[in-house]
Design a protein around this nucleic acid. Structure first.
Lengths: 225, 225
DNA sequence: TTACGCTTTCAACATCTGTTGAAATTGTAG
DNA sequence: CTACAATTTCAACAGATGTTGAAAGCGTAA
């Protein structure tokens, strides 16, 4: 079998180095030589394990995507099951989306922080945002919107999707950890404090969604479909 | 004097080409030769007008930043003046932040769309997000938070800044125009329809901010300062 | 016209880029 | 130990990259 035995799996060292560097400088801002140096490995080794550069990038993205999805899907199904046969509350749905990825102890590991910053890079890239995010996260998102549809039956789909857009933007910017809010707030908020940010974002986003149900005049568009 | 006279100002052609390419592929994803080709100009000309590559990038960012800021600052001061001596409403403040840049006719110009996508790229970049955004947009943001402080006197600064974080993330993702929401919503929402997105984002964000005033239990942290 | 300064092109540089094939090393099973 | 396969390094390639200095083109004022 592969893996599990080697003391220092250079394959993983390369993935870690690539993750750290891609997350900070983007795909084109990183050379295979820089990755190899960071990993303490020869340049050619990355090509041996992953093929061309672009495939290494995909491998980095893929490595943690499934774990991420399973955590959130689990929390979401739990919330739905607990509320059955009633609909779950918007607040619980939103919490199931954020808390598994922002408040658990793993967020303090540098590897996960780097991965989150990488997701931020991909999600806001006009080049890859549309395709890559879709490829990795669409099934979860669809399940998530479905749950919101249950909790907010009077709200039109168009509102739900734009609400998700706002949610995704807020989460993504938190992922990026640019340090901007630190400077803006004079140190009051820290962009690397993801659990701390979670509380505020959850409440903010919950209210944003619930507002759609309270402002029925916007829902005229529902009839247009 | 400079400018104004030449029929085809190649300097502007270079800025336009750089803007379009940087916004799609990021700083490192674009070569000076690609920019020169797009502009129909020799490679060396970019260096003559702007110096090294990095300075060209800054020049692209700078060109529209002041216009953007003046539009929004004007709208914000107008809203504050109209409400005086009372505090302006949260909804009006948020509208003053979004509408000048999302609903005016200029958003249909490719140049402005490219510039917005570029802002999305910069804002979510761990490398530049902290410094560049601060450099170009902080004065406006501070004035904006100040207005929110008037409208929501019971809300702690920490909540206001995290609220701004959510707002900024939602706006930035809209700027990126990745086409992701198009796919996710089966064409119901279009990521290049910025005026359409504006309505939903404004209401979403407004409710997010107002929620802070209604959930006083979160405000315990205000006393901790 | 001439002369001059600003703009644009041309040609070339040193360096870096992703990738590859062969050689060396390591691990493992007989 | 031997033989063989998987891993890792070495050396080098063809092409691309940012930058530069010299030359050519341009408008304008004398």
């Amino acid at each position: 079998m592969s893996g599990e035995k080697k003391k220092t799996d250079k394959r993983e060292l390369i993935l870690n180095a690539a993750e750290a560097l891609f997350s900070r400088h983007g795909y084109d801002g990183v050379t295979l030589r820089a990755i190899a140096k960071e990993a303490g490995v020869d340049v050619a080794l990355a090509n041996y394990h992953f093929g061309p550069k672009r495939d290494l990038f995909d491998a980095v993205l893929m490595r943690r995507a499934q774990i991420l999805n399973s955590w959130r899907l689990e929390a979401l199904e739990q919330v739905i099951a607990d509320a059955a046969p009633s609909a779950p509350s918007v607040h619980d749905i939103i919490r199931a989306y954020f808390e598994p990825i922002l408040t658990r102890p793993h967020v303090e590991e540098p590897g996960w922080k780097n991965y989150y910053a990488l997701i931020a890079y991909v999600n806001n890239s006009p080049e890859w945002g549309g395709k890559l995010m879709t490829q990795f996260f669409d099934p979860l998102i669809n399940r998530f919107v479905e749950a919101l549809r249950l909790a907010l039956p009077s709200v039109a789909d168009k509102s739900l999707f734009w609400g998700y857009h706002c949610l995704s933007g807020a989460l993504t910017l938190a992922f990026a950890q640019t340090g901007r809010i630190d400077h803006l707030s004079n140190g009051l908020c820290r962009s690397d404090d993801l659990p701390g940010a979670c509380d505020y974002i959850v409440d903010f986003v919950t209210a944003g969604f619930e507002q759609f149900a309270k402002n029925p005049e916007k829902e005229k568009e529902k009839a247009m479909l």
